[in-house]
């Protein structure tokens, strides 16, 4: 892929798509900043319940020490939200990268090789795809919990499997179409091996829609991660801060009239999901040629030169 052209396409976007992209990038950037600089932004650690031997108050109201108050586990809500961004970004990034790698590779090979390998893979992927994704995530999370515990890697892996089919299907279908292209025939004609053809001729031309699927999936993965945490199947509270887990703990406080512990992690989930969705949709409108409308400039004809009319009969 050509980075300069890719970037300039986005830069030259106009109208609605540009605004969608801009707002999305802005929101996402704030959360990325949280994730990267959590130790400096958050006043306390995510599992810190006391400072200098003095325990935090339980369910405290916002104050100078605890800007957003504390929750029922004596955690500082502001710190939990900031650290939660790091967890969310890590899990989502890991799962998206893993599923993209597996999905693209499988799709490329399956689409190019064809035959029974293609049929079996296609069948398996379709089966995987037709399951409700949350259900699938719950099953994987259960299975992984017993083997590698409830950490960030386990959460990411249980999300990975859900998204593989999406990359697989898109890449496989574009590969099947690109396989018939003359430049692939030309590659065969110069004596390139199948692996070379896939690597040098197909890969760059079939992965172009992957960034778009990636960002759209990121939003979805974040929602699924929160749901897992909410159900208590996500990340163990002592491993990392998990917005979904905090939200589920805060439900009782809401019925008791204390909204703060639920409000802030909930808001974080909603904002980041929105941000990622906007980026995905924006990219889709910019990069997808089917949706992109090249804007033609309006022309005003200049007045004619009246100086030179020379007509000869």
């Amino acid at each position: 892929m050509r980075a300069p052209r890719f970037v300039s396409t986005i830069w030259n976007t106009k109208g609605m798509a540009r605004w969608i992209l801009l707002v999305g990038v802005l929101i996402t950037a704030v959360f990325l900043l949280f994730a990267l600089c959590a130790p400096w932004i958050a006043p306390y650690d995510f599992n810190q319940t006391k400072v200098d031997g003095v325990k935090f108050p339980k369910l405290a109201s916002p104050s100078g020490d605890h800007w957003l108050g504390t929750n029922d586990q004596f955690y500082d809500i502001y710190s939990r939200v900031v650290w939660g961004a790091r967890t969310a970004v890590l899990v989502v990034l890991l799962s998206i990268v893993l599923s993209a790698i597996v999905g693209v590779l499988l799709g490329l090979v399956s689409g190019y090789v064809g035959g029974w390998f293609d049929r079996i893979t296609l069948f398996l992927m379709d089966a995987l795809y037709s399951f409700p994704s949350l259900l699938l995530a719950i099953v994987f999370s259960f299975m992984l919990r017993e083997r590698i515990g409830g950490g960030i890697v386990a959460a990411a892996l249980s999300l990975t499997a859900i998204y593989i089919p999406q990359y697989y299907r898109v890449v496989r279908n574009t590969t099947v179409a690109a396989r018939e292209a003359t430049y692939v025939e030309a590659a065969k004609a110069i004596g390139a091996k199948p692996a070379t053809i896939m690597r040098k001729y197909l890969f760059g031309n079939v992965v172009q829609s992957v960034p778009v699927i990636g960002t759209l999936n990121a939003a979805d993965a974040l929602g699924t991660l929160a749901a897992l945490g909410f159900l208590g199947l996500g990340i163990a509270p002592n491993e990392a801060s998990d917005w979904g887990y905090d939200l589920s703990r805060a439900l009782d406080d809401v019925s008791a009239g204390n909204f703060a512990p639920a409000l802030w992690p909930g808001l974080a989930i909603i904002l980041l999901v929105t941000g990622l969705t906007l980026v995905g949709e924006g990219l889709n409108e910019t990069l997808n040629p089917a949706l992109r409308r090249r804007r033609l400039q309006k022309v005003t004809l200049p007045p004619r030169d009246t100086t030179d009319p020379e007509v000869v009969r």
Partner: peptide, 22 residues
């Protein structure tokens, strides 16, 4: 594949015969 060092081909549509990302 080795034969292709001796026998080569020129295609009808030059726009399609070159990999757009090379």
């Amino acid at each position: 594949r080795r034969l292709r060092t001796d026998v080569q081909m020129v295609f009808q549509d030059p726009s399609a015969a070159l990999n757009p990302s090379m």
